[in-house]
């Protein structure tokens, strides 16, 4: 059972401003049936340039409906410039807070508002044109970046709570972590560069990483890997067992083996496969 505030319950059970305003100046839509929630926001400006009326239609859970209702109340009387500054945090605050798993409902409100304002200005709804990271919920890298920056998120679970990314199959967790790391990393002062490894140290570390982190995983699928040579930053390996005939072995090498070596040995390494 969710711990909803009284304000959330009130806006869910008796939502304000349901519907579509007549002859709207702006309409913004986000979400889809497949995603489990969707919001259509419409508003009309008064002669003074302030929002005279705002209405919503929402498909979704109690907090989605409450967030939409709250947003329409917040909008009334604001100029577009003021409205534009409303953040998802403010929507949540208006309701006395939302359970953390439900923060994406407030983000949905903010996104619908942005699209409605773009619509008013005659622009296409902004689909932040960057690569989709989470295929399950169609969340792009830029959307994730924005949620991380604006809400100071540091964990994948939080990203899922705010924009849903990573809440499905989980295949994108590494990439979400990458986005978080790049933002946190950029915010932090650069760490002192690690000392340059000697060749012997480098080979030893590579062997250790292979043994500890890589071989056990490959062996589970009936494969194995052998270190052939290290030439500068080029690590030459030979794939064995099931890996040697696996079509996906190049992906394994680059996405898995190389990443592990970057993590534990040096980010400059490249992995090359040596065939017989």
């Amino acid at each position: 059972m969710w711990e909803y505030t009284d304000k959330v319950k009130e806006h869910f059970l008796n939502p304000k401003n349901v519907g579509v305003v007549e002859n709207p100046d702006g309409v913004g839509e986000v979400g889809s049936l497949a995603c489990g929630d969707a919001l259509k926001l419409s508003f009309k400006l008064g002669e003074d340039g302030r929002i005279a009326d705002a209405k919503f239609q929402t498909f979704g859970c109690a907090s989605a409906i409450a967030s939409s209702s709250a947003l329409t109340e917040m909008l009334k009387g604001k100029t577009l410039e003021e409205a534009q500054k409303i953040t998802n945090e403010e929507i949540a605050e208006f309701l006395g807070g939302l359970p953390k798993e439900k923060m994406h409902c407030s983000v949905m409100g903010r996104d619908a508002l942005e699209n409605a304002i773009l619509c008013y200005r005659g622009e296409e709804p902004k689909k932040l044109d960057s690569e989709v990271v989470c295929e399950c919920f169609g969340v792009t890298e830029k959307e994730i970046e924005r949620a991380v920056r604006e809400n100071n998120l540091t964990e994948i679970e939080e990203v899922t709570n705010y924009v849903k990314a990573g809440g499905g199959c989980g295949n994108c967790h590494d990439r979400i972590q990458g986005v978080i790391d790049s933002i946190i990393g950029a915010a932090k002062p650069k760490e002192a560069k690690p000392k340059k490894l000697t060749n012997i140290q480098k080979i030893k570390l590579i062997e250790e990483t292979l043994d500890r982190d890589i071989r056990p995983e490959l062996q589970k699928d009936g494969g194995d890997i052998e270190l052939v040579d290290v030439n500068g930053d080029e690590v030459q390996v030979r794939l064995q067992g099931a890996c040697s005939t696996c079509k996906a072995s190049q992906v394994t090498l680059k996405e898995y083996v190389e990443k592990k070596l970057h993590e534990f040995v040096s980010p400059d390494l490249t992995v090359e496969e040596v065939k017989e």
């Binding site: 839509e29 969707a38 619509c119």
Partner: peptide, 11 residues
């Protein structure tokens, strides 16, 4: 309350 029940569109 659901948007899938209506037909208003952005101009």
């Amino acid at each position: 309350m659901s948007p899938f029940w209506s037909d208003a569109q952005c101009k």
